[in-house]
């Protein structure tokens, strides 16, 4: 157990280090490289006086490392930001102030999180069902026509960009068949039934894209385990086929599937940019596209940081979960 705790701690420490490096890179890219970051941060509609105020707020007169220290201080402890008309306190993960929206970036992004979470969690349930199901089916029908068809389908599903799948699904279910409404996001707290109904198409589009990986993973892992000696022994002892597969063979596929899910979920939480844009879901991904269009630099930088945070965190969590499911990893 202590070995495992040490492994988990080491892994989280490494993740923190990566996050620190990432924040330096992001700061350098967006606040040091551009000629006039104050003008960029303030947005295209700012007056010279406002830009000067932003310049003072960002501390652009100071050396670069002092500026970065200030930025990091805001992220970890919080800081005071100037709003253009006065100053206000910006709490712990302070991502700056969006001068275009007149709001702190952290609260702007927090408003967007429920939509992204709705999309990501629902899609994950669906891609696990689809992926593990087809993987199981094609492993059991190994060498047959079913396997060939499923392999071709998963190759296609993984190759096609999500916005194409989404548009085609929309064309079929909304336009031709008329079974579903044109998706427009309804918050879960407003109306759970409408929430789910409007999210079916986005969920399905993402699930088709993602399930291919899970299908291949399940299939290959299952085929590998089924060929092992202990499985043959189980069969020789007369253990029923259903139990051989369900209890013993599938178990080997569980750790990689859990790890991959954690990883994918982390990436989705950073915003499924294309899916959210296509279906007009007001999540983090759509907010990235919107803020790039309106040239709202503080929001863009905040989103890149948040996405990076989710991905790095997901990587660490995936490794730890993998170790929980398969203790051999800890020793390696």
């Amino acid at each position: 157990m202590t070995l495992f705790v040490r492994f988990a701690l080491r892994r989280l420490l490494a993740a923190l280090l990566v996050l620190l490096v990432l924040s330096i890179v992001i700061y350098a890219l967006f606040y040091v490289l551009p000629g006039d970051p104050a003008r960029l941060a303030c947005g295209p509609k700012c007056t010279t006086a406002q830009v000067d105020q932003v310049r003072a707020q960002l501390g652009l007169g100071h050396p670069v490392y002092v500026q970065y220290a200030h930025f990091l201080h805001g992220l970890v402890v919080g800081t005071d930001v100037s709003t253009g008309v006065g100053t206000e306190h910006c709490g712990a993960p302070c991502l700056g102030f969006s001068y275009q929206n007149g709001e702190q970036v952290t609260s702007l992004l927090a408003e967007r999180l429920p939509a992204t979470a709705s999309l990501a969690l629902g899609a994950m349930v669906l891609w696990l069902v689809l992926g593990v199901g087809t993987g199981l089916l094609s492993a059991l029908r190994h060498g047959g026509l079913t396997e060939r068809v499923l392999t071709a389908l998963t190759l296609a599903g993984n190759a096609v960009p999500v916005f194409i799948t989404g548009i085609l699904l929309m064309l079929l279910f909304v336009s031709v068949l008329g079974w579903l409404p044109f998706p427009s996001y309804v918050p879960l707290t407003d109306d759970p039934e409408q929430w789910a109904w409007n999210l079916v198409l986005p969920w399905l589009s993402l699930a088709i894209l993602e399930s291919a990986k899970y299908s291949r993973l399940t299939r290959s892992s299952l085929l590998e385990t089924l060929a092992e000696d202990h499985v043959r022994t189980f069969r020789a002892y007369g253990v029923r086929e259903r139990s051989v597969i369900g209890r013993h063979a599938l178990r080997g596929a569980v750790p990689p599937i859990i790890a991959l899910s954690a990883l994918d979920l982390g990436t989705m939480f950073g915003g499924a940019v294309l899916t959210e844009s296509l279906f007009g879901i007001p999540g983090l991904g759509k907010s990235l596209v919107d803020s790039v269009r309106t040239e709202d630099l503080p929001v863009v930088v905040g989103l890149v940081l948040v996405t990076g945070f989710f991905v790095v965190l997901a990587n660490a969590v995936a490794d730890v979960l993998y170790a929980v499911a398969d203790r051999r990893v800890v020793l390696a």
Partner: peptide, 10 residues
């Protein structure tokens, strides 16, 4: 993708 979008912005 997120990085590409952000980089294209600046």
């Amino acid at each position: 993708l997120v990085f590409a979008i952000a980089l294209l912005a600046i």
